[in-house]
């Protein structure tokens, strides 16, 4: 396991390095500078401003400086906020994003599994039909539409929760629901399909024949085996939540990095775009790593260094 982990972390760093390199050079190909008022600036003024941002050096030097900085946690200075280090910008904004992401993952995945399992157990009953309809709705309604509907009905009409802004727990409720809808629906759908298969398999028949209780069979044998494919989709679900958060944070005025990412793209704030891309990549890779580890725990057949074991 340790050997596997080391190998995976090595690949993770390699991927990160490639992401940094590709993003860096892509950004260099795009137009845009920190100059707000280019036409009115003399060439010497322009040079001076660019020099302050380290943009007058040859590109390969900028690249080396950037890579060196990234590994020390220095992502450069933001173009849109004067004299603000990008690392500060991100560290002060990552909290709300993480909180929302984790909450959405939890309230999406766990109820998703339960609802999916329930659908499979009560197959072809009204319970199954209802859960299927709910999950199809969850998949087909985009998060930003759901967000606006929640704002209007729950926020504006019922006034149960704040429409937007960031404060205590109550402020996280609507955005979390909007973000969690799609992971919830995906998990429910996958769990149901898998569980229906598993419940029809021979070893479940055998377990029942051996006289195990119905719920015992479901919990110990059916659910555990159904979860393997569900774990596989955790990675894509995390991506879903991350990309969803960019829109959701804008709609709910949440001071997170998704909202900042959109802003930095609109204002050509390249240091921030790169830093957020890197942060997103790291988060995604960590999620994938965790998924793989959990995978091994759930299913002994897929222990990675299986041969030596």
């Amino acid at each position: 396991m340790a050997k596997y982990l080391v190998k995976r972390i090595f690949y993770l760093l390699l991927t990160l390095f490639i992401v940094i390199t590709v993003t860096f050079f892509l950004m260099k190909l795009l137009p845009g500078t920190p100059l707000q008022n280019q036409q009115k600036l003399s060439p010497s003024q322009q040079h001076l401003i660019l020099k302050q941002y380290g943009l007058t050096k040859p590109v390969w030097q900028q690249y080396l400086i950037y890579v060196g900085g990234v590994f020390q946690g220095n992502f450069g200075t933001s173009f849109q906020f004067s004299d603000q280090p990008v690392s500060y910008l991100i560290s002060s904004r990552i909290g709300p994003s993480l909180l929302l992401g984790v909450q959405a993952m939890i309230i999406g995945v766990i109820p998703g599994i339960l609802v999916g399992a329930l659908g499979a157990i009560k197959k072809n009953t009204w319970v199954d039909t209802t859960t299927t309809i709910v999950s199809i709705l969850g998949i087909s309604i985009p998060s930003f539409v759901l967000a606006v509907l929640l704002q209007y009905f729950v926020g504006l009409k019922l006034q149960w929760f704040p429409i937007a802004d960031w404060g205590g727990f109550s402020y996280t409720v609507l955005p979390t629901i909007a973000l969690a809808a799609s992971p919830f629906a995906d998990t429910a759908r996958f769990t149901r399909t898998e569980m229906v298969d598993v419940l029809n398999s021979d070893y479940i028949e055998l377990a029942r024949a051996k006289g195990l209780s119905k719920w015992g069979v479901i919990y110990h044998h059916a659910l555990r085996n159904s979860l393997i494919p569900v774990v596989t989709i955790m990675g894509p679900l995390a991506v879903n939540i991350m990309t969803g958060s960019m829109v959701i944070e804008n709609i709910f005025s949440i001071p997170g990095i998704g909202e900042q990412f959109v802003k930095s793209i609109l204002t050509n704030d390249y240091p921030t775009i790169m830093a957020v891309t890197i942060v997103y990549s790291v988060m995604l890779m960590v999620v994938l790593l965790i998924t793989d580890i959990v995978y091994g725990i759930i299913d002994p057949r897929i222990r990675i260094s299986g041969k030596s074991n």
Binding site: V148, Q151, G155, L156, A164, I251, S253
Partner: peptide, 12 residues
């Protein structure tokens, strides 16, 4: 406060 979404702004 910063509000970037026009619909949210109206509700607020």
């Amino acid at each position: 406060r910063v509000i970037k979404d026009q619909g949210t702004w109206l509700s607020q």
